[in-house]
């Protein structure tokens, strides 16, 4: 079994604070983590390795610091890590990102066959949930999104069965290999790194692939290869509603005033 896991390094939003003056995120001192969805995807891949033997390769596109996320993955038990970094990759939207990731997977496949590619459902910094499906589309791989677990892996007959969770139902989906699966959060308990793996990770240096190491066309990279652009950004204006009416007084007084306002509007219901 050979699984490739796509990992993105993201700021830990649980630690993020808003600057009350500028209304923007305070990024300084915010630690970077493996995107939580991707950490669960990695765990799912490692469980398959525990069960069937084989190998897990982790891949991340990002600035040189993203090597940290990859080393972390090695400490959990991943075997090989590849960092995709190049100035030309900067400014990529999801289309350009999936292009580089797909090209990297093609190169890995040319070195050794890949059965499964795992991605997270979405990256918490942008929440687009587009990159996983995009990579599958580029590689013409079967796609199973929002998986809760891998139910069965059968390389001899060339299929995988995964349970996907969607609105109101669970689907058991059988897909031809190679397949790309995107993982939900909280689906499995992420293991602790073992001492030998931690030692290995401390010494491990991810392979670094840039534009030169990949069979890519420059026109599809980074800003140039990104059809979408941010045209402007702005602080949202309050919707056109009457100015807020402040209710003041003791807790009992404001409670009384509020309920008096809401009851006639039949806004509160008797259960």
């Amino acid at each position: 079994m050979h699984a490739v896991v796509l990992l993105k390094q993201v700021p830990d939003t649980a630690e993020v604070r808003i600057d009350p003056k500028t209304n923007t995120l305070i990024r300084e001192g915010v630690p970077s983590i493996i995107n939580p969805y991707d950490a669960h995807a990695l765990e799912e891949a490692l469980r398959l390795k525990d069960k069937y033997g084989g190998k897990v390769t982790v891949v991340s596109m990002g600035p040189p610091q993203a090597a940290e996320a990859l080393k972390k993955a090695i400490s959990y038990g991943a075997d090989r890590a590849i960092l995709l970094t190049d100035r030309k990759f900067a400014g990529s939207d999801t289309l350009a990102t999936s292009y580089v990731l797909a090209k990297a997977i093609e190169k890995i496949v040319s070195q050794e066959p890949v059965d499964l590619v795992f991605a997270g459902k979405q990256a918490i910094d942008g929440d687009t949930a587009q990159v996983g499906p995009g990579v599958a589309a580029r590689l013409n791989m079967a796609l199973i999104t929002y998986i809760e677990r891998v139910e069965e892996f059968n390389p001899d007959e060339g299929y995988v069965v995964a349970v996907r969770k969607i609105e109101g139902r669970k689907e058991y989906v059988r897909a031809k290999l190679p397949a790309l699966l995107t993982a939900l959060k909280g689906i499995n308990e992420i293991r602790y790194a073992t001492m030998p793996d931690m030692i290995r990770a401390a010494r491990y240096q991810p392979e670094v692939w840039g534009k030169e190491q990949l069979d890519v066309e420059e026109a599809f990279l980074g800003l140039k290869g990104s059809p979408t652009q941010v045209w402007k950004s702005f602080v949202p204006q309050a919707k056109a509603r009457a100015k807020v009416e402040m209710l003041t007084g003791s807790p009992e007084e404001v409670a009384k005033a509020l309920v008096e306002k809401l009851v006639p509007l039949t806004l509160i219901a008797n259960k």
Binding site: T24, D125, T228, W231
Partner: peptide, 15 residues
Amino acid sequence: AFGGNIMATILCKTA
């Protein structure tokens, strides 16, 4: 917008 307390307007100019 990505990671800020702001909204972004995004255009897809040519594709």
